[in-house]
Design a protein around this nucleic acid. Structure first.
Lengths: 353, 353
DNA sequence: CTGAAAGCGCTTACAG
DNA sequence: CTGAAAGCGCTTACAG
């Protein structure tokens, strides 16, 4: 009734009460075949009577394992937890964790610091998503001997990654836009700093790769990202950002006919706001996304986008991570997942002037 | 380069290398004020040189804490991870965890068994959602001395809960439906076994409470749940279930004019399929949800529903849990969160015959 | 300000 | 089949 912190029984108590040694109690739980069945039975009986459960903390220390995979949340958690695409990836991760009988530890910044969180993470392996993987983080994990993989990370870094071919996907979808006559285009780009290590500009970040893809498509039409008909806006890419962008897009580029975004959720926020302001899509403005969320076919008009299978990224990334944890492989691996462009009603045609 | 499992340095190595005791090394990390600043500096220097980080496993065993909150996934994980409402709750939980510098451990069934997962959970407190809390689970956690709270759990059980007033909310929304002339109604109810301990029928489960609410509203119109004009279908309530329900609803009740669901995600799946089959909402059929997801205002027509703040449930539930962990309170607490009915275009009027 | 030593609760190689 | 004992890597009361 009243919560006097009754001390939990330990293996020692069970040993004493059952008349066997701690060794035997441990065996009864972990390797019962080594004992006679009567012994196991007696030990389990007293364990049940005293309400004994092996302390996972002590067990894990002995075993030197956490039985948990960590998912590192970036500084700004709201962006993460509100993006259905990321949640899809997390679902994939948790599926593999379940198969392996591991838990999934969601690791927020510790005292506002991702680095601190990495230092203290109580996990056997770590997964990041679309994050600026500072060298410091990689170094700490190396010293701590904790394998790391990055989903939508920077494929030119030294850690294993799971990505789609971002350049090619961006090229493909921009092609669809240009093919339909659009020339005055606003690009909503993921903020660079979400992805890049600003120091080493040699690195090809995801937003960079995608912009390269856009550029390549534009060039085939005699244009470039520097063209005055192309306006680039950086954004954190949340639903709310999308809503807020509505006005900004027209302010900065009154003759815009198509908005190309790097994320469905921001495109959906934009579509939502456009409808609210009675601006017709695609007649007045076309909108294009990236991810192919479930939501992108719920909204009307349905969103043209790039399908990248988040679930699969999570699954494959986690399987890869387990390979490192179990020591099955050691070389640096890059997984590339197929994507496809999905054209729906949010992308319309425009008369080429 | 090659992954020879180099042994990580321990506190002992740092002690030896720095010329101080293990005690001092520990103090340098945890309570530097107790040492002279030169000592701290020297110790930290050698720690950095050797790439030492305190092992959280050992630390936690000494401290008898995990610094993590557990979220227990029910048997069927897909339903959980694909329901935006639940994810909203998880977001709230993780917010509080971050404030407290805790991690959030997502705990899937262990060897297909939720009970096994509960036995082994390496956490300081546990949160469940809309789950059948078997006595066994409660008992194990009591013995393991791990506090537990239930969100959308069964308010008549002995554990602390966070809920809305489900009966009253269901009453209110059914009132809106009846007020608009609907009499031939299909109710999509959450499956009982997701919530109830079948043994003790005295318990008021969430679906039961909501049905009581519906009943009360119906009675005011001289009807009841047993009325032949009321059809009840049990469902797991996923998007896919909603799609599949489209045909079933009309098969079972050809003259239905309104579908009342207990979950937005199933209502949205239904709306999606209705649009696909060119069945006009609300002209041909009205649909009503429960939760007020972001998605419910993205889809058209926008969904009439009950707004229950998932984020807030997560936050308040987790704060409550920390009170138990920290021993601030011990009595059984029930939190009730406000809700409100939101009428949108998916609910139309019908001529009363 | 610093250190020797006990303790956290398990696992497991080794011996019998 | 069973047990004594070392070990996992920390924390911390106590002593000086």
């Amino acid at each position: 009734m009243n919560d006097i912190k009754r001390k939990r029984p330990t293996i020692k108590d069970i040993a004493k009460a059952s008349g066997f040694s701690k060794t035997s109690v441990s065996f009864a739980f972990n390797d019962p075949k080594r004992l006679s069945s009567e012994t196991v039975e007696k030990i389990m009986d007293t364990a049940k009577q005293l309400g004994y459960f092996p302390d996972p903390l002590a067990r894990n220390l002995s075993l030197q394992k956490h039985f948990s995979i960590g998912f590192l949340l970036p500084q700004n958690i709201n962006h993460t937890m509100n993006n259905p695409y990321i949640l899809k990836v997390i679902e994939g991760i948790s599926q593999v964790c379940e198969e392996k009988n591991y838990t999934l530890t969601i690791i927020p910044p510790l005292n506002q610091s991702v680095i601190e969180a990495v230092k203290h993470a109580a996990v056997d392996g770590l997964i990041t998503m679309g994050m600026d993987l500072k060298n410091q983080i990689v170094e700490i994990l190396e010293q701590r001997n904790i394998p790391l993989i990055a989903i939508d990370g920077n494929p030119s870094q030294v850690i294993p990654t799971v990505n789609i071919n971002d350049k090619s996907a961006a090229y493909d979808i921009m092609k669809e836009v240009l093919k339909r006559g659009h020339r005055n285009i606003t690009i909503i780009s993921l903020s660079e700093d979400l992805f890049s290590d600003k120091v080493s500009s040699a690195i090809q970040t995801v937003p960079m790769l995608r912009r390269n893809g856009y550029e390549k498509a534009l060039e085939e039409y005699g244009m470039s990202l520097k063209d005055e008909r192309i306006n680039i806006i950086l954004s954190e890419c949340t639903f709310e950002d999308g809503q807020a962008l509505c006005d900004k897009v027209f302010d900065e580029q009154p003759d815009v006919t198509c908005v190309v975004t790097m994320s469905d959720i921001v495109a959906i926020g934009l579509l939502y706001q456009l409808r609210h302001e009675n601006i017709c899509v695609p007649e007045k403005l076309s909108v294009v996304g990236f991810d192919n969320l479930l939501e992108s076919k719920l909204i009307s008009p349905r969103l043209t986008t790039v399908d990248q299978p988040g679930l699969d990224k999570g699954i494959q990334g986690t399987k890869l991570l387990f390979n490192y944890i179990e020591g099955t492989i050691s070389e640096n691996t890059r997984i590339e997942i197929p994507y496809k462009v999905i054209v729906r009603e949010s992308l319309g045609e425009v008369d080429v002037k």
